[in-house]
Simulated scan of single mutants.
Amino acid sequence: MASPYRFVFASDSFQGTLSSSQTASLLQNAARDQFADCQCVGIPMADGGEGTAEALVAACGGELRGVDVHDPLGRPIRASYGLLGDRRAVIEMAAASGQQLLMPEERDPLMTSSYGTGELISDALAQGCDDVTIALGGSAANDGGMGCMRALGVRFLDENGAELAGVGRDLALVRSIDLSLFRLYVGETRFRVMCDVRSPLLGEEGATLGYAASRGATGEVARELERGMARYADVLDAVFGRASGVSVRDQPGSGAAGGLGAACAAFLSARLDGGIESILELVRFDDILATADLCVTGEGRLDGHTGVGKVMSGVAAACARQGVPCVAIVGEVERGDLPPVVRSLTAVVPTVESSEAGEEALDHAEELYVRAARRLFSLVAIGVGLGA
């Protein structure tokens, strides 16, 4: 392999210590200590949760746009989403409709709404975006996405033809849906959803019974919401099921974010994808890997959860498809059975031994990471693991 080397850095954050961007900077310094003329490409990473919009803006050279919207209880707030260029946008629904916006005593899924998320989408459409990605997670609402769709022009009507507000308590009251204004809003826009939660809309693992307790619903309130969600699903199937031939109830991920996954699939014809897969597509990761000699990924802890929609698993899989060696620097490795993703890695470099992990390791996370990065590139310099 001839110099100059080309290295790609795509690590998750080490929660509470190092950001994805910081790991890329530290890796670049270590690489250039060994290969002064190497090319380094750092790609800030996230898995679809909090920080996804910011990471994608950094990776794609876009910008964060602030918008006046409404929080889950209808109060005015300022929220941001990402404009990525090429008429693309990424929206974290938690920015406008997340639980972190409410005090614990304010959580009431009968009264909360995802309307603010729809306002962010509406603004992106007004900016000319025709490719919109919505990251689900952390919702304060259990409204089946009604609030979000209302902000996009959908009218939910009760048995008397009166328009409903689109909060959780309205689920059972929906009898028909007016889409005439909605179609003017969305046009031919392509939508996709980052949705690592594969829960169904209904049932013990569904939007309500599986998650409503964390949103403030217990006992009879949860049962009321579940009955309402079942009635709402009937209406969605009546409106959309005939054309697609698939019930909204049966789509994995339809229960994500209090049923917003179902609304995105039904109203927006959105693809429900895993978070990291969507991010790798948005940053055009395969193109970045095309001329790479080595990719370095990683996360704070390599354990049994690493293979479930996480940054490291997605990056390793992409490298395996392209035949690019992939090494992971991780904070620590859990003892016991590890996920299959480990088999696709060229090597794993822990920053600490498991027995040494603890508060002291967290306090010295950067120093430990630098040592691991230097060890890695010392091995690269003598051709270990890269086929040199």
Score class of each variant (00 low, 15 high):
Leu376Glu: 06
Val324Asp: 00
Leu225Phe: 04
Thr189Leu: 14
Gly49Glu: 09
Tyr115Thr: 00
Gly145Gln: 02
Arg65Thr: 14
Cys264His: 01
Ala126Gln: 13
Ala230Glu: 14
Val349Leu: 14
Gly48Ser: 10
Gly387Asp: 13
Leu110Gln: 12
Arg192Phe: 10
Ala140Gln: 03
Leu236Glu: 02
Glu299Met: 02
Phe14Lys: 04
Ala292Asp: 02
Leu179Glu: 14
Pro200Cys: 08
Asp37Met: 07
Ala217Gln: 01
Gly300Lys: 03
Ile177His: 00
Val57Gln: 02
Arg87Gly: 00
Arg242Ile: 05
Ser113Tyr: 03
Ala357Met: 06
Glu188Thr: 14
Arg374Ala: 07
Gly358Glu: 01
Gly98Arg: 00
Cys295Glu: 08
Ala265Cys: 07
Glu105Gln: 13
Ala381Ser: 15
Ser176Thr: 15
Ala372Cys: 07
Met146Thr: 04
Leu225Val: 04
Ala361Leu: 03
Glu205Gly: 10
Val341Cys: 15
Thr23Cys: 14
Ala10Asp: 10
Tyr232Lys: 03
Ile177Lys: 00
Phe156Gly: 00
Gly128Leu: 05
Arg183Lys: 15
Arg155Thr: 10
Gly16Phe: 08
Leu368Pro: 00
Val315Glu: 05
Val370Ser: 10
Ser180Leu: 13
Glu332His: 08
Ile121Gly: 02
Cys319Leu: 11
Val296Glu: 11
Glu92Val: 04
Glu366Arg: 12
Ala388Ile: 11
Val308Ser: 13
Glu353Pro: 00
Gly258Thr: 09
Ser355Cys: 10
Ala357Asp: 06
Pro4Arg: 11
Gly153Trp: 08
Val341His: 01
Gly49Gln: 11
Asn142Pro: 01
Arg87Trp: 02
Ser20Asn: 10
Asp337Lys: 13
Arg223Tyr: 07
Gly168Trp: 09
Pro109His: 03
Leu171Phe: 12
Arg150Pro: 03
Gly145Ile: 04
Glu50Ser: 12
Ser354Cys: 06
Arg343Glu: 15
Ala372Val: 00
Glu226Met: 11
Arg175His: 14
Ser13Arg: 08
Gln100His: 13
Phe267Glu: 05
Gly261Glu: 08
Arg374Leu: 06
Gln99Leu: 15
Asp286Ser: 12
Leu376Tyr: 07
Val341Pro: 01
Pro200Ala: 06
Leu157Met: 14
Ala316Thr: 15
Arg321Ser: 10
Ala217Pro: 02
Gly261Thr: 07
Val41Cys: 12
Glu366Phe: 02
Ser122His: 14
Ala55Trp: 01
Ala207Ile: 05
Val8Phe: 08
Phe156Val: 09
Ala55Met: 15
Asp250Gly: 13
Leu368Glu: 03
Asp273Asn: 11
Leu362Cys: 05
Phe7Met: 10
Asn160Gly: 14
Val352Gly: 07
Leu338Ile: 09
Thr52His: 09
Ala30Asp: 09
Leu164His: 06
Ala124Asn: 01
Thr112Gln: 07
Gly48Glu: 10
Gly314Tyr: 01
Ser3Gly: 13
Phe191Leu: 12
Arg107Tyr: 05
Gly82Arg: 05
Ala233Phe: 09
Met194Cys: 15
Ala217Cys: 04
Ser97Val: 02
Leu294Ala: 09
Thr351Val: 13
Gly304Tyr: 06
Cys40Leu: 12
Arg242Asp: 06
Val90Asn: 00
Ala388Pro: 08
